[in-house]
Every structure is written in C-alpha cells, then in structure tokens.
C-alpha cells in the first residue's frame, strides 16, 4: 500500500488511494467542471431568451413590466448576503472553527429559504392574474375577438386549465374572463399575444430551474452543516465546505444575471 495515503473521513475504502492534497485538488477540479456544465445548461436558456428578445422586443418589454422589480431586488440582496456568509463559512472551516461554520451555513440556508418564499409569492401572484405559459387555443382567439369566451374558461378559479376535446393531454390556456384581475382591454388583448406568453414561458423555465438549483444548494449546504456540527472540519480538511460554497456562489451568480435580464433591461 502506498504510504502516502491518509484516511479521509467519508471516503469509501477503495478511494483511499488519494493523498489528501491530491484529493482536495481533484475534488475542486471536479467541482469547477461541474459548474461549467451548469453554466452551459443555463446558456441554452440565455441564448433562447436573447434570440426571442431580439425578435419580439416590444412584447418582451411590456411583458417584463409585469414583473415586480422590488421583489427581484429583495431576492438579489438576499442571495448576495447568503453568498457572503457562505464565503465566511469557508474561511471559518479553514481555521477549523466548526461551530462558526455551522452557524454561518445555517444562516445561508435560511437566506435560501427567504429567497424561495419571495419567489413563491411572485409565482402565485402571477398565477392568479393568469400570467402562465400556455399553448394557443384557437377558441381563445375567437372568443377574445367576439367577446363571449366566459362560458369556456371563466368558471374555474385558476382559470388556467381547460381540456380541449380530443387533446391527449391537458393544455394550459389563457383565461380571458373576469378572473384576469383588473386588466384593461388592451392588456387583455396583449395576454393573448403568443410572444408575450413566450416571455413568461422562458421566465418560468429560467427562474424555475434556478429555484431548483437553490433547493439543491440548500440541501447540499444543510448536509455540510451536519458535518460541521459533528466537528468534521479542520485546517487540513475542509473540502465539502469549499465545494458547497462554490456551488452556492454559482447559484448566486446565475441569479445576478437573471435579475437584470428579466426584471430591469428595457
């Protein structure tokens, strides 16, 4: 057996061929590669957004006005603070202060929670006023024009679901009845615009995927937190804290691009 091998907590027996220094660098390289794949994952959405924003500038602009920038800004602040505490946790781990690591990470996870709560309010508000992606329903167009669409879609509170005869799966449609709260006629008309819907389609995909990453990040950091409360970290071994923090920074970074793109840019 190689004499340079040291026991690393949490590594499987067969992985003991790593020296601890090598394991640290290897894990970091792996994480960076993984972050690269994450960025590429989002790049598809960013590209799509860029293309369609270029094509449908007007619709995308007016659609973006529907978003509440104050909520977005709150979330941005929350995430930046959480990223900062994650970095502090990393520093604490390097000094072997497990208790401080635990507290800082708990705070970070709590920030993630706040982010999701704010997101929930944003989503549910939009859902209520009917800003939801949906396939074009020919009836809706016809109804919007002739103004007797209420019988088709007006009944349900959510208004978004309607099964169209013969369709093999449920399709979401735009409500055009009274439940489209307090919108002017002009706004109603815009609701029916496909490209307007496309904006929200992309909005939900991008922020939804990001929210999923927030949840995963919270789970990862909670696990690191657990390790910290068991006193696992020392000056020599703090890889999980660093990797968790790296991941959290990425989650933060993506939001920092999403926020201006979706909420602010005219």
């Amino acid at each position: 057996m190689n004499s340079a091998v040291e026991t690393i907590p949490g590594e499987p027996p067969h992985a003991h061929h790593w020296t601890s220094v090598n394991a640290y660098h290897g894990a970091k390289l792996g994480m960076w590669l993984f972050l690269a794949t994450e960025i590429l994952l989002f790049s598809v959405l960013f590209t799509s957004f860029a293309i369609y924003r270029f094509l449908y500038l007007g619709e995308f602009h007016s659609a973006s006005l529907q978003l509440d920038w104050r909520m977005g800004a709150t979330n941005t602040a929350v995430l930046i603070i959480s990223s900062f505490t994650a970095a502090l946790a990393m520093d604490a781990a390097q000094h072997g202060n497990n208790k401080r690591v635990r507290n800082l990470l708990l705070f970070t996870v709590a920030c993630g929670g706040i982010f999701l709560v704010v997101k929930y309010f944003e989503y549910s508000h939009k859902y209520d006023i009917g800003l939801f992606p949906g396939r074009t329903c020919p009836e809706v167009h016809a109804d919007a024009a002739s103004g007797h669409g209420d019988s088709h879609h007006g009944e349900s509170d959510h208004g978004a679901k309607a099964d169209h005869g013969g369709g093999h799966h449920q399709e979401f449609c735009w409500p055009t009845g009274d439940n489209a709260l307090g919108l002017s006629d002009a706004q109603k008309e815009m609701l029916v615009s496909n490209n307007y819907k496309m904006y929200f389609g992309l909005y939900y995909c991008m922020t939804g995927l990001h929210a999923l990453h927030v949840i995963i990040g919270m789970a990862v950091l909670s696990w690191v937190c657990l390790l910290a409360s068991r006193g696992r970290f020392s000056e020599k071994y703090y890889t999980p804290v660093e990797l968790g923090a790296l991941y959290w920074h990425l989650v933060d970074l993506i939001w920092i691009y999403l926020f201006p793109l979706l909420y602010l840019v005219d």
Partner: peptide, 23 residues
C-alpha cells in the same frame, strides 16, 4: 437543457420551438 425545453414545450406550451407561437 434542450430536451427539457422540449418537455416544457409539450407540457406547458412555452412556444420557443413552436412556429404557431412565434417560436
């Protein structure tokens, strides 16, 4: 991501690949 978007397209009708919706 492309395949996820395709799923979203079928499921929710996001529209970015659907010419009927400007995609």
């Amino acid at each position: 991501m492309t395949l996820l978007l395709l799923i979203m397209e079928r499921w929710l009708g996001v529209g970015i690949f659907d010419p009927k919706m400007g995609g």
